[in-house]
């Protein structure tokens, strides 16, 4: 499935909730169901800077696609990174770099994009795109 299709899928799932509380409960559920990382992967070099909760993001490059795995010690943050992984993982680097991730706004998580939010959603996206960019450069060599 393409990035856009996955975004649409998430948007329609979130349309079921008209209450923020249900929405957050869902994000927490998503967070709980993300496999997370083994302790040995929770390394300093995988930490995303600028997040109030710790977020580790591990990228791999397999068969022309970037595969992300991640973990966080806060559940909401973990849920949010899980959504990003659902959309961006197992996609070609080019598509990741160009993704506009409109779904964040559409499912009402835009407030997490503001600079004052230290959950670092912006930093997560930036880091994912940077990894994709690096893999893309490697691919072209």
């Amino acid at each position: 499935m393409k990035i856009k299709e996955k975004e649409e899928e998430i948007i329609s799932e979130f349309e079921m909730f008209d209450d923020w509380m249900d929405k957050y409960n869902y994000i927490i559920e998503i967070g709980k169901s993300l496999p997370g990382l083994d302790e040995e992967n929770k390394q300093e070099k995988y930490l995303i800077k600028g997040c109030q909760a710790r977020v580790w993001l591990v990228p791999e490059f397999k068969n022309g696609e970037v595969v992300f795995s991640a973990d966080s010690d806060a559940l909401i943050t973990k849920g949010i990174v899980a959504l990003l992984i659902r959309v961006l993982s197992r996609q070609p680097p080019e598509d990741i770099v160009n993704a506009d991730l409109e779904f964040i706004d559409r499912i009402g998580l835009k407030e997490h994009l503001s600079q004052t939010r230290s959950n670092g959603l912006l930093n997560m996206i930036k880091q994912m795109k940077l990894y994709a960019l690096a893999f893309k450069a490697k691919q072209q060599k």
Partner: peptide, 13 residues
């Protein structure tokens, strides 16, 4: 058992 960030986010809501 709850990260302070999670607590704070819900309080803000």
């Amino acid at each position: 058992d709850i990260h302070p960030y999670d607590t704070g986010t819900i309080l803000d809501k």
